[in-house]
Design a protein around this nucleic acid. Structure first.
Lengths: 231, 231
DNA sequence: GACCATATTATGTCTAGACATAATGTGATC
DNA sequence: GATCACATTATGTCTAGACATAATATGGTC
């Protein structure tokens, strides 16, 4: 364990135990330097890491304080559907239902009007039947290669992950009743509660893909964790 | 913009544009030092930040490489319900429906058998009616103060956020049909699709609270974003 | 007391080194 | 050709400073 890690974990421990509660001013950097007999940069490394995790706040001239916890941030694992299904059910297949080229009509707001798009509709199949329904648009202006890619061989998700480095993504997660289309393809009754995951992905500010995935509510859930990160 | 930030953003730009694709070895630190005319520690700061965001991988002796993207991780904003509702509807109130002290029966697995618990059931109310139903257990072994706190004055969520520093949290998000209890309290038909958010919170490895929140599917959704972090 | 300019101070960023460590390639040996 | 010991090299962590910056505290003025 490095010196910085030791400083960090000892501060974490004091906060977790309640010895230093939110709002408490922790020792100044120069005091920690004296206490640990290390350089200020080393203390800085430890404190910076704790600021990133949201455990501390620093104010110039005033000092470093234990932050009031904000429980609103967690790291959500958006699973690689194929992998997740394969792990859970033992097998995985993506069935392509429809594929065409079109232009954005400008109504959805997901892409600029007139953007050339490849649209892909398909089903993620597990061992015991359909798992999720997917409706995807890929911008051919951003990803020209998507025009000729063969998505019967590789699922759009995994093709995109391998081919397109993205820089920004946004997800919306909601609960809906199964639509007529979804209920047919997932072989579930209409209005069955489903988890709807929408994802927008950008590269350098340009929209790359919009995907709408509908999961059977009884077979799928998302897990988010928050552990003060320690890569 | 600091030197480290500049280095970082220029590397990000090269990756985003596709100039450096996954697997590509980026210049050695000493080359970047020469290029930017700065100290190695400064280059290190920039590269370390990019490793944290998952954009780069470093291997001793071999060099630093553009990482293969893993689209599985996003930062989920678990909203402070009160705040979110107040912002959306203009007003907020927490109605406490039930409150008692009990011991864990060891069946749920959320707490050790015999743990003394405070159980709180209530509804998050917005301007236009009920928004979410909440069923919560707080460990009195971890948080003795919860025994005598008055949750008619302050909602359990905000009381806990203020009082208890937590170190670990786990969320499970799923879609369910409204149960009899939920449909009554949220004034929606039975089996209406709802978003179910379960949260477990720990402090120093000890479970602090387990909460199960049910949101009206038509009024609520969660948003997760992934932007290579830059606090 | 209220207000404002100023000195002080803790953090923010950086430099130019140092030594440690892990992994790769090289060359000698079998 | 296969194996193993070794030198090399890039990253990992750290030191002991430096100067910049923002915010607080201080003291003087009205």
């Amino acid at each position: 364990m490095t010196i910085a890690e030791r400083i960090r974990s000892e501060i974490e421990e004091r906060i977790a135990s309640g010895e230093w509660s939110p709002g408490h001013r922790i020792p100044f950097e120069h005091e920690l330097v004296a206490q640990y007999g290390c350089a200020r940069a080393t203390v800085g490394t430890a404190l910076t890491a704790l600021v990133r995790t949201g455990l501390l706040e620093r104010r110039r001239k005033a000092g470093t304080f234990v932050a009031y916890p904000h429980v609103q941030s967690a790291v959500l694992d958006i699973p690689d559907i194929g992998k997740a299904i394969a792990e859970r059910t033992g097998s995985y297949r993506f069935d392509l239902l429809a594929s065409d080229i079109r232009q954005d009509d400008g109504l959805s707001g997901n892409f600029a009007s007139g953007t050339r798009l490849r649209r892909l509709v398909g089903i993620h199949q597990g061992q015991d039947g359909p798992f999720a329904f997917e409706d995807r648009l890929i911008s051919l202006d951003s990803v020209p290669a998507a025009r000729d890619a063969d998505f019967t061989v590789q699922s759009p998700s995994s093709w995109l992950i391998q081919s397109v480095p993205w820089t920004q993504a946004r997800h919306r997660i909601s609960a809906v009743g199964a639509s007529a289309e979804v209920s047919t393809h997932l072989a579930i009754p209409r209005y069955t509660p489903c988890l709807l995951v929408e994802r927008w992905t950008w590269r350098t500010g340009e929209p790359v893909t919009y995907v709408c995935q509908t999961f059977r509510g009884d077979r799928f859930d998302l897990v988010a964790t928050f552990t003060p990160e320690g890569r």
